[in-house]
Amino acid sequence: MEKKRILLVDDEPALTRMLRLNLEQTGRFEVREENQSTRALATAREFRPDLIFLDVMMPGMDGDEIAEHLEQDPRLCQVKYVFLTAIVTKRETGRGTAEISGQTFLAKPVRREELLQVVDDLLGL
């Protein structure tokens, strides 16, 4: 079975590295990190991920701005994405994720099990 491709967009390299290590450790995903928000769309077009993690607050371009471009891009509009944010608290997201106006949110700090659960849910695994 082909590995699912996941793109991580966050301005903090240590965080994308930790996310990548945890995801790759399962052996089921191919992961790409992008720490420059302005390059996120270009990387997505080139990498063609199945799922994108988007930090909400980033210098240059915010996560929701990137999401807007994703939905308008015919080649990327089918790609699932999930917001990763420090502003939403765990209580608001319940266990793991929250749907706020139709968007999926994952609250920092996220635990490995929650992370893998959200990925499985969104990719229908």
Partner: peptide, 15 residues
Amino acid sequence: EVKNPLAVIQLGMDF
């Protein structure tokens, strides 16, 4: 500012 480093530590420990 605090939640980002916490997330790094959490995921690092889990890994």
